[in-house]
Design a protein around this nucleic acid. Sequence first.
DNA 1: CCTACCGATCGGTAGG
DNA 2: CCTACCGATCGGTAGG
Lengths: 193, 193
Amino acid sequence: MTSTVAKSKKKIIMEAAARLFRDKGYSASSMRDLAKAVNLKASSLYNHIQSKEALLQEICFNNAHRFLQGMNEVEKMEASHLEKIKALIRLHIEIAATDITSITAFNDEWRHLKDPHLTRFLRLRKSYEQRFLVLIKIGIEKGEIKDMDPQLILFTLFSSVRWLYDWHRKDRETELSSLEKQITELLLGGIKA
Amino acid sequence: MTSTVAKSKKKIIMEAAARLFRDKGYSASSMRDLAKAVNLKASSLYNHIQSKEALLQEICFNNAHRFLQGMNEVEKMEASHLEKIKALIRLHIEIAATDITSITAFNDEWRHLKDPHLTRFLRLRKSYEQRFLVLIKIGIEKGEIKDMDPQLILFTLFSSVRWLYDWHRKDRETELSSLEKQITELLLGGIKA
DNA sequence: CCTACCGATCGGTAGG
DNA sequence: CCTACCGATCGGTAGG
């Protein structure tokens, strides 16, 4: 019982931290802000967490692993490379839509990680990008995708989806499936051969 | 002479501030960091600038006005609405390419403005978005652009170009004209009817 | 342009 | 889980 209470309290703190980091940024968010958000004194937070940076680490690495997990599944698919890229666009949209606060912190605040973890994080990120790039390159070779700079395609796909966190806050009505369909259509119309 | 020296020193400070805000974020950048970057003591900065927030204000409003100025010119063009939207994409790329540090601070750090200025800034931004939106809507009515959610098109165009600041740092060789051509092709292939 | 310094706030610890 | 408190650092001012 003590353990389940402690566990859920940590989750409450994690979620409040993600929201705070998203809204004010990591540096401008104080542990006193966070404590207030979960009805504790600042010092009491440290019964549940190690440090401010540990909160950021958990957010960053949790999300990095979600993307890499998605990549694992996509690579195993029996499908054309265009289909695989569509599946990755869907992955980005779905992650952004289901955990909007966490993913925003992940996108924008990772640079505040300190160096053993920063390097580790950038390695994961680089690996994801490389694997994505391979799919694009093969897609181009097979004539499924227009012959453009693969890096340019990659970064455009990535960032095309990053405004979603803004959107979702003001318009919770738009259905996810409609969002997915329209964004995919917009992007694929552009890169499909 | 005193005046020209003071003026150029202020510009040096402004540029160092933009770089700092881009690299570490506004909140994590201290006035002591900034002073070190321009070979002064922190207190001496205040002979050239009013406050830390005033630096951010200048970055944010300067860039906001560049975008609005560009919009003025585009609206006056004698061209189809598709051409106008192409011109705006070019505008975004050119601003991003010619003043990469300032535009990044503008994109990401405006939320740290305090309230009289924050509201003013958001009003400018909203106005730019509305005018862009009108061009998209008319383009759709005229059958020049696919019939998709105009907001979705707007935000996708905006963010598609935001990764440029990363790109330019690692690959200063890619020519601007080639970048423009490829991004426009990628985006327009998707929205052109 | 500097030295000296201000009050406020930071992340975090001690001790219970 | 709290009170009390730490040293460090913050943006900025006084005074020269």
